[in-house]
């Protein structure tokens, strides 16, 4: 068994696709109509055959209070790994991306948190050393 997809719950799939491709730099993998929504996934350019990120519609009534509670406490919905956090931070800020937390040390990683404009906070992480298995 393997993990082929993980998801973020987004307020608006079309807006999310724009943000996750135009700003974050992921590429579209699947866009399949399913009822009133889409099975919409993106992948990393660095790993096009890697795990897909599903931009999942947040239509269920439990989703909004859950997302709001995470954002209130500053907690990211998910986390992406980058090679050079300072470079990504500078690149994304130049593109107008809003960071709720600028790059900081957090133990074995450096991290920053940005707003995906679709109701989520997203953590970027640079490993200072490999995590223990």
């Amino acid at each position: 068994m393997r993990i082929y997809v993980t998801s973020v719950l987004v307020d608006d799939q079309a807006k999310a696709l724009k943000f996750y491709t135009d700003k974050l730099g992921f590429i579209l993998k699947h866009d399949i109509p399913v009822g009133e929504h889409r099975w919409l996934t993106v992948v990393s350019k660095e790993q096009p055959e890697g795990t897909e990120l599903l931009l999942e519609p947040g239509a269920h009534p439990a989703v909004q209070p859950f997302k709001d509670a995470l954002v209130k406490d500053g907690i990211p919905a998910t986390s992406f790994q980058v090679q050079d956090l300072n470079a990504e931070f500078a690149r994304l800020r130049e593109l107008g991306v809003v960071f709720t937390l600028e790059p900081m040390d957090a133990g074995s990683v450096r991290m920053a948190v940005l707003d995906d404009t679709c109701g989520n906070l997203i953590q970027l992480v640079e490993m200072k050393q490999e995590l223990p298995a």
């Binding site: 406490d73 500053g74 907690i75 937390l101 900081m104 040390d105 957090a106 133990g107």
Partner: peptide, 11 residues
């Protein structure tokens, strides 16, 4: 934020 304070403890 709460998240940032927790992260600062880890750091």
């Amino acid at each position: 934020s709460l998240f940032e304070i927790c992260a600062s403890f880890v750091a």
